[in-house]
């Protein structure tokens, strides 16, 4: 680096640049928060869906599955599972676990009540309605 670019200048560029881009990030965040009601499907965020999210979290589903593409990559995407499989299949599937098929990936049995199963399905109905800019590319997730 040339002698004309001093350490003091480098320091000023660092502080100025970081503050500027962080403020820009805050501005974009603010705008996103204003725009979210149009895309985040909040009108389908019923108490049941909220309870479903709690079940999703307390069973650590994200440890195997992805949800809108984020999570572990061991088991299928579930953001759109409501559309792909429908409510009855989802409930029956969870209740049938584990398959105990030798050598196959196993999902634990969570002993969910009927109410809890309904809540979880309601959560998936909500996630399937989020506007994800047409992701995933097809129904398989």
């Amino acid at each position: 680096m040339s002698g004309t670019f001093t350490k003091a200048m480098a320091r000023n560029v660092f502080y100025g640049g970081s503050v500027f881009f962080f403020l820009l990030f805050l501005a974009l965040t603010f705008d996103t928060m204003k725009a979210l009601p149009k895309t985040d499907n909040r009108h389908n965020l019923t108490p049941s869906a909220a309870a479903g999210k709690h079940i999703w979290e307390t069973r650590n589903c994200i440890g195997c599955h992805t949800l809108l593409g984020e999570g572990a990559y061991y088991a299928p995407e579930l953001g759109n599972v409501y559309t792909r499989r429908g409510p009855d299949f989802i409930k029956a599937w969870i209740q049938a676990m584990p398959t105990n098929a030798p050598g196959r990936r196993q999902m634990p049995q969570f002993h969910l009540t009927d109410q809890e199963l309904d809540d979880l399905v309601e959560f998936f109905r909500y996630t399937a309605g989020i506007n994800t800019q047409k992701w995933p590319p097809n129904i398989e997730g």
Binding site: A10, L68, I130
Partner: peptide, 28 residues
């Protein structure tokens, strides 16, 4: 001096770079 340049580049690209996680999660 190098250190300042590197961390400037890191934050200038990385802060707004957060946006690469905001493609398909219901954000604009």
């Amino acid at each position: 001096k190098w250190l300042y340049v590197i961390i400037t580049l890191a934050l200038v690209t990385g802060i707004i770079g957060t946006g690469h996680h905001y493609f398909w999660i219901g954000t604009p």
